[in-house]
Write a protein that binds this DNA or RNA. Structure first.
Length: 811
RNA sequence: GCGAAAGUGGCGGAAUUGGUAGACGCGCAGGACUCAGGAUUCUGUGGGCGCAAGCCUGUGAGGGUUCGACUCCCUCCUUUCGCACCA
């Protein structure tokens, strides 16, 4: 309705999937990618999507990624990008490291979901997303309501903020302390031992020279050898070994043993925990197994809702499970009697005062590893100089263009490492011989800011002109799948905040509203003998090509090339036409749901469009006359509508009701499926009216045809444009306004009321819409169906819902 | 285990704020047109009883609120998704 809408399209073109596919087809990734872009652009154009192609971009284009390289230089400047040696996720199939976000929960690779991700120690580039951990969380307040709660929840889990304290336990006989993180400082007095992760630096030093040394070393080796997913398994048996060393509880001064335990994670907190068996399930199980003391320091109190509830006091010697709830502190010296929430603060204050700890917030979120040991990506703009070390490429030398003329073969993981001509470069600092960085960026770096570039895609001198960006951003409506919840959507939010801090964008959040659309799925075909069959392994009669058994429908799975269950749009277009495919894709259900691809259902849609075409062509002559008459009579409003027959009135009501409902389905709810259903009804109504004798007057036919064509245009643009001309309208239907329903016509003169007795439907009656009071009651009571059920009973009351129903309550 | 969402005909799905459950489509059944039909068209289609009018029943199960509940409340079941030794 006159609003400006930015509806761009572009190509996220770098990355492993493209590189792997190119490798498989023995072609160069650049060529493979560009050919695919051509192909897909053709398909999108064929489907009639109204993208603004002037803003098209491809992330593998130096005109695009040069700005990304600039942003990286800024990150280096700000200390937001850094290099470190770390143990990282490594996928053998991808031949590269992966970010934590790119490892599935079951430890497989996000691209190769059958390949287990291993570990490798490498020096890599990281981006300090953790600097924004807190803001990524608090920023959710601006997104609440606009984003699906599910996505926000997934991000919350991923960021994993937890508030607690760092506590230092002095080590007996050493001048260092072991530092632990806890969210329950209120239970500190109950810490009866300390557990270290097998990877903790102290696990070798502590038992050194003691009787326990050999046992500890053997245990640590065993644990470290166990694969990551094994250690995360639910049934992983909690085990540990005593180091022989003791630490001092900083609150009570008690001497507590230091253990190594297999369930303590080095990656989280400090890699060491204080064990409070009475109030932590894991510590409880561990303590019972190894006969360690259980000291109760929190006694439960009655809940506020039931202050009289009886409470059984806990006893460390006899309890059979840890008590993890809140309560009142005991056995904690001066703090006895303090409620646990309050106690947390008091203990932290005390530790701070004594220099034995302080309040601390930890996050599960880790810095984002952005370098990849692959060719098909944006070069990381730094140099390695033997004298100066790591040197950023000077801004004036950007972009560092990825050489696309390198010989590319299956056997070389990263041809950049062998591209001597490209590699050799003079160091901008000392002028000596330096070499380029051969790692490239993770593709998620490109997708973290592309939406900003759309605002000014052709700009050659800067990433975007600020005025253009401010005109469009933030993005009012973003559409994407949940699979991006903790990948793209968290990276893009981070990038936006970084660019905001550099003064390049306004606002804190890039996407105000997020819609998670469903996927197109297809039912698998299962042969009783051979299991999963691809489409080409099943004959037309539904039998297996190998054994001839009847193939049965299995479960519905996402269409994907690797599962070979993809339906090519072009095939379907060739068979049914573009408009049919478009309408089908929205008719199956609301867009947030998955669509189960079904050819039978496509035929239903095809029938509708063919019928619409036929009915509209039938009425075209009348519509043309009606339109001409209306234009001639313009100004003499209402003249065309004098003396309408009941049938004409009914059709006009249907027309305006359809306009009203389709408009709301499309604008408010995005329930295009019900919108299409209304249009189907309108075609049926018009078809019936045209077949009736007498047929409706030309003006009414023209009104129906006009409304239908405008309403169907977004769904079936080609059909609509043809019909638009056929019914005598000029110009393009896409320049015409969306129709508006006449509110007066939404109200019927007569309404059908549902008649109920005691809430059960007992009949219907058609009455004047304004009938009310005793006259209405009389009309209702006169109905046979109602009378039969109230005879001999007393009418208690009558409930009238205007325009809908009358309910008579009897006894 | 924790959290979230969802359970409606043979199927996909409708049902605006608590007001005719099953719109629309697929499938199925029967009729018409036809040499023929996988084309088109008409009719029917939640289940049960009945020739019929009509009656009973029905939205995962059980309870509740209400004149009236797919919709609101409680308990439970199932499915899907997310998290899961995070100290």
């Amino acid at each position: 309705q006159g609003d400006q809408v930015l509806h761009p399209m572009g190509w996220d073109a770098f990355g492993l999937p493209a590189e792997n596919a190119a490798r498989k087809h023995a072609t160069h990734p650049a060529r493979w990618t560009r050919e695919n872009i051509e192909h897909m652009r053709g398909q999108l154009a064929q489907l009639g999507y109204s993208f603004d192609w002037r803003r098209e971009l491809a992330t593998c284009d130096p005109a695009y990624y040069r700005w990304e390289q600039l942003f990286f230089l800024w990150m280096l400047e700000d200390g937001l990008a850094y290099r470190k040696r770390a143990t990282l996720n490594w996928c053998d199939e991808c031949q590269t490291v992966l970010a934590n976000e790119q490892v599935n929960p079951d430890g497989t690779c996000y691209i190769h979901d059958h390949t287990k991700v291993g570990q490798r120690e490498l020096e890599q580039w990281f981006v300090r997303i953790t600097k924004y951990a807190d803001e990524l969380l608090t920023g959710h307040a601006q997104l609440a309501g606009g984003w699906p709660e599910k996505v926000l929840e997934m991000q919350r889990n991923w960021i994993g903020r937890s508030e607690g304290a760092l506590v230092r336990f002095a080590l007996e006989g050493r001048d260092e302390a072991v530092e632990v993180f806890t969210t329950r400082p209120d239970t500190l007095a109950g810490a009866t031992f300390v557990s270290l992760a097998a990877e903790h630096p102290l696990v070798t030093a502590l038992p050194a020279g003691r009787a326990e040394e050999a046992a500890v070393r053997a245990f640590v080796q065993k644990v470290r050898a166990e694969p990551r997913d094994r250690r995360a398994a639910e049934d992983y048996e909690k085990e540990g070994v005593f180091t022989g060393a003791y630490a001092l509880n900083p609150l009570t001064g008690a001497r507590v043993p230091v253990w190594v335990a297999n369930f303590v994670l080095m990656e989280y907190g400090t890699g060491a925990v204080m064990a409070v068996p009475a109030h932590d399930e894991r510590d409880f199980a561990f303590a019972r197994k190894y006969g360690l003391p259980v000291q109760v320091v929190i006694q439960p109190v009655p809940p506020a809702s039931d202050p009289q509830a009886e409470i059984v006091a806990l006893d460390g010697a006899t309890m059979d499970a840890a008590y993890v709830g809140p309560g009142v502190m005991v056995a904690s010296g001066e703090l006895d009697g303090t409620l646990s929430e309050e106690g947390k603060k008091k203990v932290v204050a005390r530790l701070t005062r004594d220099g034995r700890g302080e309040g601390k917030v930890t996050y599960k979120l880790r810095d984002w590893g952005v370098s990849r040991q692959r060719y098909w990506g944006c070069p990381i703009p730094v140099l390695h100089c033997p004298k100066c070390g790591i040197v950023p490429v000077p801004e004036k030398d950007l972009p560092v263009v990825l050489p696309e003329d390198l010989p590319y073969s299956k056997d070389v993981a990263n041809p950049l490492a062998h591209a001597e001509a490209w590699l050799r470069v003079d160091c901008p600092r000392c002028g000596g011989a330096a070499r380029r960085e051969t790692d490239t960026f993770d593709t998620f770096v490109e997708s973290s800011w592309y939406f900003l570039r759309y605002c000014d895609a052709g700009n050659q001198t800067e990433p975007w002109a600020r005025a253009r960006l401010d005109h469009w951003m933030p993005c009012d409506q973003y559409v994407g799948g949940v699979e991006h919840a903790v990948l793209h959507l968290i990276y893009a939010r981070f990038f936006h905040k970084f660019l905001r801090d550099r003064g390049l964008v306004k606002g804190d959040e890039p996407f105000l509203r997020l819609f998670s659309q469903g996927m197109v799925c297809m039912t698998t075909l299962e042969c009783p003998k051979h299991g999963w069959r691809y489409r080409e392994e099943v004959r037309d009669d539904g039998t297996c090509v190998e054994c001839g058994s009847k193939v049965e429908a299995g479960r519905s799975v996402k269409m994907s090339k690797s599962k070979r269950n993809v339906v090519e749009p072009s095939e379907m277009i060739a068979k049914y036409g573009v408009d049919t495919v478009r309408v089908y894709s929205v008719f199956g259900g609301p867009p947030e749901k998955n669509l189960d691809w079904s050819e039978a259902d496509i035929q239903g849609v095809s029938r509708f469009l063919v019928r619409a075409w036929r009915v509209l062509r039938e009425g075209a002559a009348a519509a043309v006359r009606g339109r001409a008459g209306a234009e001639a009579a313009a100004g003499a409003a209402g003249a065309a509508w004098a003396g309408l027959t009941a049938a004409e009135q009914a059709l006009r009501h249907k027309i305006h009701d359809t306009i009203d409902r389709v408009t709301r389905d499309v604008e408010e709810r995005w329930h295009f499926n019900t919108g299409i259903a209304r249009l189907m009804e309108l075609v049926s109504a018009l078809g019936e009216a045209l077949a009736a004798k007498p047929a409706p007057r030309d003006a009414v036919v023209a009104e129906a045809a006009d409304a239908f064509v405008r309403l169907v245009a977004p769904f079936a643009p080609h059909l609509a444009e043809e019909l638009w001309a056929a019914i005598g309208a000029t110009g393009s239907v896409f320049e015409a306004r969306w129709p508006a329903a006449d509110a007066a016509l939404l109200v019927k003169a007569e309404v059908e009321l549902v008649l109920q007795v005691n809430g059960k439907t007992r009949g219907k009656v058609t009455v004047a819409a304004d009938l009310a009071g005793p006259a209405l009651e009389a009309a209702v009571m006169a109905q046979e169906g109602v009378r039969r059920h109230i005879d001999g009973k007393t009418v208690v009351k009558t409930i009238v819902v205007p325009g809908r129903l009358v309910n008579v309550v009897v006894k």
